[in-house]
Amino acid sequence: MERFRWLYIIGLILVLGTEGAGAPVRVVLPESVSVRGDEIFLGQVARIDGTSDLDDFSLGRSPGPGSSLNLPGSRIRIRILQQFPDAECEIPGIVRVERQGQHISEERVRVLVHEALQKENRDVSVRIRDLRLVGQNVFALGRLTLGRLETTGTGSRVRGQFPVYVDGNSAGNLRFVAQIDRMGTVLVATRNLEKDGMIRPEDLRQERRDITGLRGDVLSHPDQALGMALRLRVGEGDVLRSDRLIRPPLVRRGDPVRMVVESDNLRVHTSGQALRDGGLGDRIPVENLRTGKVVQGEVMAAGRVRLAF
C-alpha cells in the first residue's frame, strides 16, 4: 500500500512539472506605447506570460524626446517567433511608440535670456520685445541643466543658444532668436556744437535712450567730455561719442614754450619752440632756441614742456 502511495505522488509531480514546463509563451502588445529611455525594450511596453527571456528584447532605438515613430507589428512578431516558435502573439499591424520628455517653454527661455543679458550689460536695462525658439525644445527625462548663454548678432536682433545637459550628459542645444532693446544713459548735445569748440557744462545733458543700435564708444557722464574739444561738428540732440573728442591743444605749432628739466635737486628752464600741436600729456618735438637741437618733451601746461632728465 505504501508503495502505491509513493508511486502516485511521483506521478503527480511529473505531471505538474510537465505542465509547468510546457506553459505557452504569450505576448500582448497594445497599439500605442510610451517609453522613457533611448532604446525600446519589449518588457517595458508589452505584457509577456510564460517567460522572462523577452523582457530585455530590444525593438530598436527610441524616437527623440517628445517625438513618436511607428513600428510594423509583423516585424516584431517575426523576431519573437524566431526565438519562441510556439509563442502566441497579439500584436497590432502598427505599434505607435511615443518618447516621453520634458518641455522648456518660450516663457522660461525668455526669463533665462533676460537674466543672462542683464548680467552682461550691468549699466543698461535690457528689454526683450520678441523671442522665438528654433529647433528642439523637448529633452530627455532627468536632471536638466543649462550651460552659459552664447549669442551672435549685432543691433537689436540676437541669435543665441544654451547648451543643455541631462543628468550631466550633453543633450543638444536650446536655440532662439530674439529682438531686444538696451536702454542706457547717454550724453546729448543741447545745441549745435562746432568743430574745435571747447565743451562746457551747458552744452550737455544726460538722457535715457535705446542704445542697441549705437556704437560702443558713446559717452554717458559729463566728466568724460567737459574740457575736451570737438574733432567734428555735433548737432543738437546728437549723442556724443569719444571718437569725436580730442584733448584741446595747450601748445600749438610755432608757439614759444618754456622747456623744463627737473630732478630731485635741480630745475632748469630754457626757451624753445613747439614744432607740433599738443594737449596735456602729449609728447611733441620741441626746438631748443639756444642750441637749435630738437628734442621730445611732454606737454605739462599751456606754454610749458617737460624734458626727460
Rank of each mutant, 00 (worst) to 15 (best):
V25S: 06
R36W: 07
D55L: 13
T291P: 04
S105I: 01
F162A: 01
L174S: 02
V305F: 07
E298Y: 02
S271Q: 12
M1Y: 06
V186A: 07
Q179G: 09
K195S: 13
A140P: 01
A46N: 03
V166G: 01
G101W: 03
Q224D: 14
L117F: 00
L230M: 02
V134H: 06
H269A: 11
G279D: 08
L204V: 08
E262W: 09
G93H: 11
F84H: 15
N288E: 04
L16I: 15
Q82L: 09
G184E: 06
S156W: 05
M300E: 15
G292A: 02
L54Q: 10
L240V: 07
V27F: 07
Q179I: 10
T212F: 08
R191Y: 08
D167Q: 05
Q161N: 10
R99Q: 07
I246G: 09
L133M: 11
F309Q: 13
G147D: 05
H114N: 06
E39D: 07
T212I: 07
Q136G: 01
E194D: 14
L29M: 01
D53N: 11
A229E: 08
G184N: 05
L141G: 00
P222A: 05
A87Y: 10
V158F: 03
S220V: 01
T152V: 09
M228W: 04
R252K: 13
D264H: 08
R99Y: 04
E150K: 09
D223R: 14
G278E: 08
L144P: 00
V261Q: 14
N265G: 12
I94A: 11
A301F: 05
K293R: 13
Q44T: 14
R143F: 03
W6C: 09
L187Y: 06
L266C: 04
G135D: 04
G278M: 06
D243K: 11
V166F: 00
V164T: 03
G213F: 13
R129P: 00
I76H: 12
T151M: 06
P63W: 06
I48A: 07
I10W: 10
S242P: 02
L204D: 08
R215V: 13
R276M: 13
Q136W: 00
R77T: 15
G254Q: 10
V134R: 12
N192E: 11
L275Y: 03
L307A: 09
E236F: 04
I40Q: 09
N137H: 15
Y165C: 00
F309W: 12
T190C: 05
I199T: 10
L29D: 01
I104D: 04
Q118L: 00
L16K: 08
T154N: 12
R5W: 09
T18F: 12
I13S: 09
V188G: 03
I246H: 10
R75L: 13
Q44S: 15
G142E: 00
L266G: 02
I13L: 15
L307D: 13
I180F: 04
S58A: 14
G184K: 06
G66H: 03
P92D: 05
E115T: 04
D264V: 11
L81H: 13
I13K: 01
R247W: 08
N192L: 08
L112N: 01
R209W: 12
F41V: 10
V124A: 12
G237M: 02
R215M: 13
P248C: 04
R233C: 01
A140C: 00
E115L: 05
V45G: 01
R244V: 12
S67Q: 14
V234T: 15
R129G: 07
F139P: 00
A116P: 00
P256N: 14
